[in-house]
Structures are given as C-alpha cells and as structure tokens.
C-alpha cells in the first residue's frame, strides 16, 4: 500500500504504518493524522517529536507505559499521564502517535 502527496509516494504496511522511516515528513504526518481523525495541534506535535527522538536514541517505539513515564520526566507530570495523552490520541498514544510519527508499531503493543 502507499500514500501519495504532491507526487511523492510513501509506502505503508497493511495497517497503515510507514515502512521506510526515513520517508517521514510533516506532510505525510498530517495525512496519517487525518486518517486517524486526529487534528494536529502543537501539543500533538510535541508528542510526535518526543517519540521520534526516543526512537532515534533507542531504536524502538516505546510501550505506552514507558512513553508516559518518559514524557513525564521531560515535559512534566501535566503531560506525563494517561489522561492527557489519551485526549490527544484517543485510540492509544503509543499506537496512534507512532503511526503519525512514521515509526513502527510499539514492541509489546498487543
């Protein structure tokens, strides 16, 4: 499967995750977000960018519990909690935000 934006093709797997991380850009993130019915705000971008940094450092997408804790450490307890993250990404912050961020499905995400 693939997404096409302005003549550029992005390959995705059967669940809609990008297959090539290096293809990711903000254009495709917006399209992926729209498919997830997520309207991107600065707060959404903050989580997406956090996730991409986490991935760059550790080469995995974190489980939601780990993501929540790590966000809490970096951005404070107001943001490092389930309520905040699920409001931004109602179908699961790790799963949805990873998809929008162009990362693979989190390990341990069942």
């Amino acid at each position: 499967m693939a997404i096409e934006i302005n003549g550029k093709t992005y390959d995705t797997d059967e669940e809609g995750y990008l297959t090539d991380l290096s293809q990711w850009d903000e254009d495709v993130a917006k399209v992926l977000a729209a498919e997830e019915k997520v309207e991107m705000t600065d707060n959404h971008w903050e989580v997406i960018n956090f996730l991409r940094e986490y991935y760059n450092e550790f080469q995995i997408a974190p489980a939601v519990r780990v993501l929540t804790k790590a966000i809490g450490k970096k951005l404070g307890p107001d943001k490092g909690n389930n309520k905040y993250l699920y409001e931004l990404f109602p179908y699961g912050p790790a799963k949805q935000a990873c998809k929008i961020g162009g990362l693979p499905k989190p390990t341990g995400c069942i």
Binding site: E57, F58, Q59, I60
Partner: peptide, 11 residues
C-alpha cells in the same frame, strides 16, 4: 539494535 539495551532501564 544495540541502542535498545539502553532503553531497558525505562522498562
């Protein structure tokens, strides 16, 4: 995948 061992602490 060696950087992933550094993530274990967070798990």
């Amino acid at each position: 995948f060696s950087p992933t061992y550094r993530a274990l602490d967070g798990y």
